[in-house]
Structures are given as structure tokens and as C-alpha cells.
Amino acid sequence: MKRSICVSIAIFLMVCFLGPDIIALQTSEPEELFFSSNQAYRQGRFQEAIDGYSRLIRSGHKDGNLYYNLGNAYFRLDQLGRAILNYERARLLIPGDADLNFNLSYARDKTHDAVSESQDLVGMTFFWLKDLSLGELLWGFAVLNLLFWTALLIRLFFKFEWTYYACLISMILWIIAGTSFGLKWYQLNTNNRAVILEQEVNILAGPDIRDTLLFKLHAGTIVHYERSEDGWSLVSLPDKRSKNRGWVKAEAVEPVIKETFLNKCIIPSMRNP
């Protein structure tokens, strides 16, 4: 009797706590939608493919490959801005994907504006951050966390020289992995990169159509998004040496990450993909 109660409690706890963490139940609907979108892409019905991929993303399937496919579909429709936007979003999730990096590089080559993003000291020191996603860094840190505490535990019982070095090495790796994870998390939370969506946009001195025209930007150019006011967005060029900043119509630019990153489980939310 007691045993059956214990088993029941254990199952209840597993359902309560582990339930949300276990891979989502495989339903046939998303798969069908995914396949039909792929089919539409292959047959040249790119708008249909875009609709399909967007529906999947909105329904919670926030996968880097979906953003990549969506970027490809926009590229085929000559919407360079939206293509680059989705490639950038895919790069947050699958930064090491070779196809993605090739396509993004190719799409960037097609942009008109020669705007370069300057790399900061942290980015140069922790050079591996750009090639690893937050999830991969998280797993790496988890494994090293386990190794580190295990090494310390072993050292409690066996105070040999090798346990000392094992603790030391695992601690160094643990610190590097932890710092990398923290920095990546910070980078994503403070990522204010945005993409110009329209073929050509005017950057004005103020949030009014009558304000002075400062300069023009073209589709696919990366800018830094600062804030929005009355349907206008304040943007600046990512090159730190350049002081160029100004106002652009809000619909002409879209941030790569729109809301707090971790609140959405490493998945950027989409307004109108």
C-alpha cells in the first residue's frame, strides 16, 4: 500500500516538474506544415512558404533552422532586409551552421551600404562566443559544473596530488565556461541590433517627416536601435567611430531581438515575420 502511494507521488512530481521540460509531444500538424512549406519553397511558391514557416514560429517552434528557411524564402522574393533579419535571428540559435553563415555572408554582400560593425575587446578575447549559441554554452557550463564539483568531492576523500590538479584545471575551465555563458547572456540581453527592411529609407534629424534628411540607408543594413516614439525609431550606425544617428519610420526597421531574451527561452519574439 505504502509502496503504491510512493510510486503515485513520484509520478505526480515528475509530471508536475519535468513535464514542461520534456520535449514537446510530437504532433503531426507542425510536421505537415513544415513539409508543405518546404514543398512550396521548392516549387517556387515562396510567399506560401513564408506563411508556413511564420505560423510554425508563432506556434512556438522557435528553431534556428526555421528562421534560416524563412530567410531563404524572403531572399528569393528579393526582400533582402527581411532575409538578413531572419538569418540574424537564426544565427542567435545556430551560430555554427555553415549553410547559414554562407547565406548570411552572401546576403550581406548584396547590401548597398558599407557599414561595418566594430568588434569590442570582450568579443576579441572571448572569440568563441560568436560561434556558440547560448544553449551550447549553457550545456558546456553544466558539464564543467558537474566535473568541477565532482573533482572537489573526490578531493574531500582523496587528498592526492592528482586530485589537486584535477580541481585546479576543472576550476579554471569552470570559470571560463561560466564567464562565457554570462557574457553571452549579457550580449543577448543588450543586443540592440536592428535591420533596415525597406529598399531605401531616409534617416531624419527628428521624428517628423519635415525634419532635415541626414543620410539614407538601404535594405539589409544593420543599425543599432535605441528607442521608438510616435511611430518613429531612433537608430545609429554600429561603427563606433561613426557618430551617425537619426530617426527612421518604425515600420522600416526591425530589431533582431525584440524582447528580453531569456524570458522567451533564447527565442526572439517576432512581431511580423
Binding site: D21, I22, I23, A24, L56, H61, D63, N65, G135, L138
Partner: peptide, 12 residues
């Protein structure tokens, strides 16, 4: 490729 997230989520 069509996952809905990983087994481990931050906060879980």
C-alpha cells in the same frame, strides 16, 4: 530540426 526547445530550459 523541427524541435520545440531543448530538454533543459533555463529555469526548469
Amino acid at each position: 530540426d523541427l524541435g520545440k526547445g531543448s530538454i533543459v530550459r533555463p529555469g526548469g
